[in-house]
Every structure is written in C-alpha cells, then in structure tokens.
Design a protein around this nucleic acid. Structure first.
Length: 291
DNA sequence: TTGCAGGGGTCAA
DNA sequence: TTGACCCCTGCA
C-alpha cells in the first residue's frame, strides 16, 4: 500500500479498482452519503470518514495511518486483488460489460450486526426509506461522537435494540419489521445467534444459522454473508439480479433458488463479486420493466 | 388534491 | 405456492 499522510487523513496513491461512487452505490451499504463535491461521508465501526477520489489516488479524510491500516484497509478489502478477480470474471462476455460499467466496485467488510439489522430493514423496502430508518435508529439510540467538529452516531448495539420497546423501534419507520429487529436483537444478546463464531462453518451452514433469525430469509442471509463476512461465494438474489440473470443468461422466468444455483455454478467462489457488478450494471442500464 | 400501485423479501397459512 | 405487510414515493 502506497500511503501518504495529509493534513487530516491519508492518501492512498495509485489505488486501482477503487471508485467511491461504485462502492457506495452498488447496494451493499446504507450509511454512506454523496457530498456535492462527489466525495462520500459515512460512519462505520464507530468512526467517521470522508472518501474522495483524486485522479488515480483516493483520499481518506478523518483518519490516520495507524487507524487506516488497522480498520479501514480491512473494511475496504484492500488486501484483495480485484484486478485478478475482474480478469477471471471477464472471461464471461456479459460480465465483461458489467465489470467495465462498475470497474471500481469493492466488497466492503462491514460489521455483521449492523449488516444483519440493515438488511432485515431492507426487505420489501426502497433505498431512501431504508437509509432514513437506519439513520433514525442511529440518531436516537446510537453512541454520539464528534469528529472534525461534526456530530455523528454509531450504530446501536444489540443490547440497546433488545431493550427497546416495539413501539420505539416502529417509531423509526421500520414498519412491520420492528418485531423482527426486536427478536433478532434478543437472540443475539442471548447468544442464540453468535455472529462472531461463524468463521469455521461452510457458507451453507452459516446461511442456515442466519435464516434462523426472524426477518432473515435467503436473500438477507446472503447479503449479510457477502457484505460483512467476506463470503464471496454468497449470491443474493433480489428483483434486479433476477431481472439481469433472466435477461442475459437464463432467457426465461426462473425461480430465485435456481438463479442462485446457476450463478454459483457459473461464477463459483466469485459469485458474490459477480453479483455486485451485475446489480450495479442492472440498476444503471435496465429500466423498471426489465430489458 | 386525492388515490393507488409498487418497492433491493419474509412469514404464515 | 400465495397473499398480507409498514410506509414512502411517483404518477395519473
């Protein structure tokens, strides 16, 4: 890593395969917001950061070299060679186009608890409302902290959410998902779902554990594994992925399960990365009606 | 202005 | 396998 100190952050020089707009707009996270100058500001792991692409470099504003190495480098998956992944995926002609479109995507390694809650909220929901709900949960129940003179809020802990009344959670705009969040928090606090002890299990086994949590079906489980556990073989199938897979590969109406199996056969251990390129490509190029 | 369909799925029947 | 589900948004 070619790091350089700046006044208030670090500069990653010649950062290949890193485009903030692609990373933060490909559906994997909800707490990063675009600024008027094209940079993104977000909170993760109790820290706030501003990320800005400057030529071929990336500025990480609001951190230092030590914290960057200890936390953000892992968060942004900087240890992985996306050039090699893209080369592998691009042997498929459809993927070649999708990769060209979202060339700067990286899979974030987010906090499992935050990712679980966020994607329970995401079910049958739209992005603006998901972001609004998560922000309200954080503002009301997350730890408050300041950085660079600005106020930020961390994500509420499992215990905090477990102790809240159903009404308090609902008041954040969760709708009927409030009861899922409440139960999920109780299960995590009680140790019935241990998000930190899943690393020894196969992806299929982790999937089963996660799906034992209320509000977590196949899609949400796959999202949690892909976006917080570096399970790159997990392939979440939502309406956009269904659309793009049927249009370019399957050529017919196909069940969600079959789409996932097809993708995992086709892309193998990189299925999840392929999913992100395809999702971003579909969102950017396919209309509401598909094709 | 009001009404209605539809949204990055999951659950229960 | 199918309909209900919170609530916000876009559109007629």
């Amino acid at each position: 890593m070619d790091l350089e100190n700046t006044d208030s952050g670090v500069l990653l020089r010649n950062a290949g395969n890193f485009e903030p707009g692609h990373i933060f707009e490909c559906g994997q996270c909800f707490r990063w917001n675009a600024m008027p100058d094209g940079s993104y500001t977000g909170v993760a792991g109790g820290r706030a950061l501003r990320v800005q692409k400057i030529g071929s470099h990336v500025l990480f504003d609001g951190t230092n070299r030590r914290e960057f190495r200890e936390y953000w480098a892992g968060y942004f998956d900087l240890g992985r060679d996306y050039g090699r992944i893209k080369k592998e995926l691009c042997r498929d002609p459809v993927m070649a186009r999708a990769v060209e479109y979202g060339y700067g995507i990286r899979i974030l390694k987010q906090d499992p608890w935050e990712t679980l809650v966020s994607f329970i909220i995401s079910a049958n929901n739209g992005i603006p409302r998901i972001k609004k709900t998560i922000e309200m949960l954080c503002r009301r129940y997350g730890r408050k902290f300041t950085a660079n003179g600005k106020t930020y809020y961390d994500f509420p802990t499992p215990l905090c959410l477990a102790l809240l009344s159903r009404e308090d959670i609902t008041a954040c705009g969760c709708g009927y998902r409030a009861k899922y969040l409440s139960k999920a928090a109780e299960m995590v606090v009680a140790g019935k779902v241990d998000l930190e002890s899943l690393s020894e299990m196969s992806t299929g086994e982790v999937r089963e554990v996660l799906m034992g949590t209320p509000g977590v079906g196949p899609k949400v489980a796959d999202c949690v594994m892909l976006f917080s556990m570096a399970r790159l073989d997990a392939f979440p199938v939502d309406v956009w992925i269904k659309r793009v897979m049927e249009h370019y590969y399957l050529k017919k109406d196909t069940s969600l399960n079959e789409i996932r199996r097809h993708a995992q056969n086709r892309f193998g251990p990189l299925a999840g990365v392929a999913q992100q390129y395809l999702f971003y490509y579909a969102r950017g190029t396919m209309g509401q009606t598909g094709a």
